[in-house]
Structures are given as C-alpha cells and as structure tokens.
Amino acid sequence: MQQANHSTASGGRTAGYINNGDWAAYSQVNTQGAKTFSARVSSGGSGGTIQIRSGSQNGTVLGQVAVSSTGSWDTFTTVSTTLTGSASGPLYLVFTGSGTGYLYDLDTVTVTR
C-alpha cells in the first residue's frame, strides 16, 4: 500500500495500491461505542473486503464491508456497514480480496457513534 494521486479523490490522494493482507491503523480513532463505518473507495481491480477491527490488525472484528469494482481507479463510491460488538482501542482496517493485483483504493473513512 502506498499513496496514489487521483484528481477525483478528496484532497487529490488516496491510500492506493492495496493488496490482499495490507492494513492501516488509525491511532487517533477509538473504536469504543462505534456504530457505523463508511469509506469512499474506487477500484479498477477486482475489489474485495474491508475488515474493521479494534486494537490491532488481528483484533476484534467489528464489521466488514464489500468493495466492488467501480470500473476505474478514478470513479469513487461510498460503502458502509453497521458495526457490532463491544471493543475499545485504535481503529484498524484490514484489506482482503481474491485474485492478483491491486484490489481497491481508499479515499476517506468515517466512523460514527
């Protein structure tokens, strides 16, 4: 995973070049009381799943959301899911998918309580 430039992304950049097994940590986002998760994503690849976890990349799974191909790395859509479970700790996103190559790009993330 690395930064990718996209003129259609918020701020012009995404977390891109995401492969199966990559993950991202957000130490300033506590998962305690989190109710919903949404992400603005694009995919010119096969798509996959975002797992929302608490505490570590192997921590409690609070939810997951599918990311389908949007047909282009510059075409964005928002995916969302309800979060369940009782957890606290930093937010971790684990990126999964099948096939080879890049799965999707992640633009913005929103967690609500």
Rank of each mutant, 00 (worst) to 15 (best):
A15G: 12
A4V: 13
T82H: 13
T36W: 12
L91K: 01
T81Y: 00
T108P: 00
V109L: 10
G44Q: 11
G59A: 02
T8H: 09
G48H: 04
A34K: 02
W73C: 07
G85N: 10
G44C: 08
Y26N: 07
S86V: 13
S68W: 09
T100A: 14
T100R: 04
T100H: 00
V41H: 02
D74W: 01
T75A: 15
Y92L: 08
Q2I: 10
T8G: 04
L93C: 04
T49G: 06
T100V: 10
Y92K: 12
V109E: 13
T8M: 03
S46M: 03
T75P: 02
G85D: 07
V94H: 06
G47T: 03
L62P: 01
S7V: 08
N19Y: 11
V41S: 00
L106K: 11
F37Y: 02
L103W: 03
T77V: 11
Y26A: 14
S54M: 14
A9L: 02
G71M: 07
S68N: 15
Q28Y: 11
Q64W: 10
F37C: 08
Q64P: 04
D105E: 09
S72D: 14
N5Y: 13
L93D: 01
S69M: 05
I18Y: 00
S56Y: 13
F95A: 05
Q51T: 03
S88M: 03
S69A: 12
G12D: 05
Y26K: 14
T49N: 14
D74G: 06
N20A: 07
V67S: 11
G11D: 07
F95S: 05
A9W: 06
W23E: 05
S56N: 15
F37W: 01
T110H: 04
Q57V: 14
G89F: 01
S54P: 04
T112H: 08
W23I: 09
T78H: 10
Y92P: 05
T77D: 06
R40A: 06
T96Q: 13
G55D: 05
Y102R: 11
V65C: 07
G97L: 01
S43G: 00
N20Q: 01
T112C: 12
N30Y: 11
A25K: 12
L106F: 04
N19I: 10
T108D: 11
